[in-house]
Design a protein around this nucleic acid. Structure first.
Lengths: 336, 336
DNA sequence: GTGAAAGCGCTAACAC
DNA sequence: GTGTTAGCGCTTTCAC
């Protein structure tokens, strides 16, 4: 392994000067700088990052914690995170906790070992609030996709509540009164917020919330499928199903079609998130679009500011969502 | 930051002893060990990993390089990688190159800086062979999902060629003669291998390969959609379309249905990979299943062996794939 | 079974 | 503008 001494020797300077060059410090004579650069090049020298980390207590690694990476939804988001991080010289470590306590502890250790300079939290539970609090104590943190009121953790998200209200209203405006909602995993804040929006929309139109129409699910395809099968066996089958995310909606779609019913003619279906495949379903899925790439970029911008201890003017950023009206809600179908 | 000296002082031992305890070395009196453990606990001590890395030139980080993380297909695989890595005390750094030279260089630097102990390559191009070679020179590498004959890089994959032959044969056996193939990005070895399998199957049945029926695509939904639109405008429309992966097949499905045709009655569709949503399409997608979790686990096993310089008996492992016969191929439809 | 001390490669304070 | 040097926190050899 070639080190700073080798370079210094070849360039006929001291290691301090080499360090100045590699760290892009000012105050090095141009000639000297060139000589060092040439020596580095000739030897193929690259500064040892462990030594740097040890010396400066700075790892240049940022960890992105997610509930799971299974969802395609997040790839755009990660691209956004990555782009900003990389430009600032940081590497990204992606970890999925899968809600597993053991794994959470593992990441907690990583973070506490100060092996990372910052944390992006993609998963705001309400149950494991303690986890979030602990992380926040040991490292700069930014929260994404969730907005926790009264928290001192900066966050980037859409307004899940109003978006949920919006898509529920869309169904109501099309004449639906018996609208079922299949929630995501209720240990996640997001699921609760979306459920709230659903309830608010019903209340605004004086529609009674029926507990039977609220099915607690999960964020997987099969969760939507199973919950829908249950809903279909009700004496009074709902006329519309609102899935807490697109996976749930896609599962619902399948269950309805498998039962020999039509979407949207018999039952309308809508989702949330606008994953890529949503528009490729038949019928294509009406859903809420989140600006995921933008969320990733802005989150990383914020985190870097926190790491550099810059002033953050606006800790909570709420971006615009968009209702994507497609076929599955039946907006272009004559009501029966 | 509490360090090894603080612990040593509190436990009334030297730092060498503390080190022996944290590193699980033998030859420490049980009483002493307990005393050290207690001191560590009281102070909340965790060894500084940068110092460890510097001292031992070992980072305990393994990097997983992927073409992109957009594909849900890979989440299971990463779970497999993660599980094995974590048990062995390694952390995973996931990076996607997106085929971007700049990004590839970035990762190359990371690897050469010896900031990682090993590399899992999820992306075997044929074009950027140089990239692979360079990585292989600076770090232990294992290749996944592709098998490069005559390479000295260990690999875990299915046999893409025979699997491709199998699914093409399945279509032929159902009476199809005009079978189109929409390939993935041809800069990727996998796409070429799957194309080969397709051609071999046709040849085995004395069906002439028609260049027009081979459409070069990409691995995205829209690639399948666009290529299929083109195929549909042929005077002699194919009776079956084989997408180089499930995304392509899902895009094809949509294009056919959008054109007012039926799947599988008018045109059969099959894919490759068996992503989760494949069985949730209507009609559900016939495809090739890859044991992704297993591929991840085995790959990491191999890599750890390489890192520890253990003997590797079988550098190339080929796992079983499975033909998932569902509705989109029309196996249960009376031929018209 | 335990301790003293060298040194991994680097940055930054200080001296010149 | 450049060099000398201490020291980041740890592991490991060599004594005892």
């Amino acid at each position: 392994m070639v080190n700073i001494f080798d370079v210094a020797k070849l360039a006929n300077v001291s290691i301090a000067t080499v360090s100045r060059v590699t760290s892009n410090k000012e105050g090095v004579n141009e000639k000297t700088r060139v000589a060092v650069l040439e020596a580095m090049d000739k030897l193929g020298y690259r500064p040892n990052s462990a030594a740097r980390t040890l010396r400066m207590s700075k790892s240049n690694i940022i960890i992105v914690l997610m509930l799971n990476i299974k969802n395609t939804f997040y790839s755009e988001y990660i691209r956004g995170l990555e782009e900003v991080a990389r430009n600032a010289g940081y590497d990204l470590l992606i970890g999925s906790t899968d809600g597993d306590i053991e794994k959470e502890k593992n990441y907690m250790d990583l973070i506490r070992d100060s092996r990372v300079d910052g944390v992006i939290l993609t998963t705001a539970g309400v149950l494991n609030d303690d986890f979030v609090k602990k992380i926040n104590e040991s490292s700069p943190v930014v929260l994404t996709f969730d907005y926790v009121p009264g928290q001192n953790i900066p966050s980037i998200s859409i307004d899940n509540e109003s978006a949920s209200r919006k898509i529920t209203n869309h169904l109501i405006n099309m004449g639906h009164k018996r609208i079922a909602h299949i929630t995501g995993y209720m240990g996640r804040l997001q699921s609760q917020t979306r459920l709230n929006g659903y309830k608010q929309a019903l209340a605004q139109h004086n529609i009674q919330v029926q507990e039977a129409l609220i099915q607690e699910g999960g964020y997987l395809l099969q969760d939507g499928y199973i919950a829908t099968q249950k809903l279909l066996s009700f004496e009074k089958v709902p006329t519309a199903i609102y899935g807490g995310n697109d996976n749930i909606a896609i599962g619902a779609l399948k269950a309805i079609l498998d039962a020999g019913l039509r979407v949207p003619e018999d039952i309308a279906v809508v989702g949330f998130d606008d994953v890529e495949v949503a528009s490729y379903m038949t019928p294509s899925l009406t859903t809420i679009h989140q600006p995921r790439y933008e969320i990733g970029k802005r989150a990383m911008d914020l985190l870097l500011k926190k790491i550099n201890e810059e002033q953050i003017q606006q800790p909570h950023v709420i971006l615009e969502d968009e209702l994507m009206i497609r076929e599955s809600c039946g907006h272009n179908i004559v009501k029966k």
